[in-house]
């Protein structure tokens, strides 16, 4: 008797999300199976990696990462063009870190000018992120939504305390929206329900269940992502069928493992490859859990993850 491998039966499907800028577009989501289970159904869209850039010089980033962008880091438009033209970014994630009250407190109008300038100079899709300050993001993201209205983007992140304002702006200007909750699957579902109840198209939401770096609670992120996918696929829960984003770089490039030099901790190995490996490992793990969009910082880490994804697809 021959052996037939058992196959899981799924009832649901993840929405497909496409963002485009002119002729260039990226598509993620769309699977009707668990990540990479193409032997059980459709897993056709390779997860997309967006390069993170900022509206201010990345002075908070570790030295070995800053060096990569040394020539462009103090000019957002140059930085955008660099990741697009030299690093061949499929998509760019512009984080408006400078709008945070503790990081310069740039005005919403200034942020809008930066967004406009970047959009005028790139031809890959753009993700626009606030500074994760609930009050300021509500102000900034409304303004940038308006200036970006001719170029549908992904904007974020909408959270429980500011989603109404941000979602209304995204809806009015035809953007997609990242909905973030803090490592709690039930609150993630609740936020999606509240967004759709205010009229936001459920197929234009991207779920951010909150990321964490390897060694810093990644298992929490992993399990929330995995359970979101199981609810979407096994229970056909339409409030959980949105693609998931992993905001990886931000969480990796602040931990001690990517900052402590080999002089101090020789048994940890060389610092530069260690940081790259840390970001790549974190990102790969999250694609296994269900992330379809990754936001990353180091080109070598992006390369490593892309090689992994090519092998898995």
């Amino acid at each position: 008797m021959s052996f037939t491998p058992p196959k899981e039966v799924y009832n649901g499907k993840v929405y497909t999300v496409t963002i485009s800028k002119g002729a260039k577009a990226v598509t993620f989501g769309g699977e009707n199976v668990l990540p990479f289970h193409s032997f059980e159904g459709e897993f056709v869209n390779k997860p997309v990696i967006a390069y993170e850039i900022q509206d201010i010089a990345p002075s908070e980033w570790p030295e070995q990462l800053r060096q990569v962008y040394a020539a462009v880091g103090d000019d957002t438009v140059k930085w955008a063009k660099y990741v697009q033209d030299e690093l061949k970014a499929e998509a760019i994630a512009l984080r408006l870190q400078g709008t945070h009250p503790d990081s310069g407190n740039r005005s919403a109008d200034d942020a809008a000018k930066t967004v406009k300038a970047v959009l005028d100079n790139i031809d890959v899709p753009l993700i626009i992120l606030g500074s994760n300050n609930v009050e300021k993001d509500a102000e900034v993201l409304v303004k940038v939504s308006e200036v970006a209205k001719d170029n549908p983007c992904i904007i974020g992140k909408a959270q429980e305390d500011n989603y109404k304002t941000i979602a209304a702006a995204a809806m009015a200007n035809k953007h997609k929206l990242i909905a973030m909750s803090e490592l709690d699957i039930n609150l993630s579902k609740q936020l999606n329900i509240m967004l759709t109840q205010m009229g936001f198209d459920k197929e234009k939401i991207i779920i951010d269940p909150m990321c964490s770096a390897l060694g810093y609670g990644i298992e929490y992120t992993y399990t929330v992502m995995e359970r979101i996918r199981l609810a979407a696929l096994m229970q056909n829960d339409t409030t959980m069928q949105q693609p998931i984003v992993g905001d990886v770089g931000m969480y990796v490039w602040k931990i001690k493992e990517v900052q402590a030099s080999e002089d101090i901790l020789p048994h940890w190995g060389a610092l530069t490859p260690r940081g790259i490996a840390w970001e790549a490992q974190t990102a790969c793990a999250l694609t296994m859990a269900g992330a379809g969009l990754l936001i990353m910082r180091h080109p070598e880490a992006v390369k490593a993850v892309n090689a992994f994804l090519d092998e898995m697809m």
């Binding site: 699957i185 039930n186 609150l187 579902k189 609740q190 329900i193 509240m194 109840q197 359970r227 609810a231 229970q235 829960d237 409030t239 959980m240």
Partner: peptide, 10 residues
Amino acid sequence: TLYAHSYLEM
């Protein structure tokens, strides 16, 4: 079904 506060409205 996955719990959310609004589960009765779904």
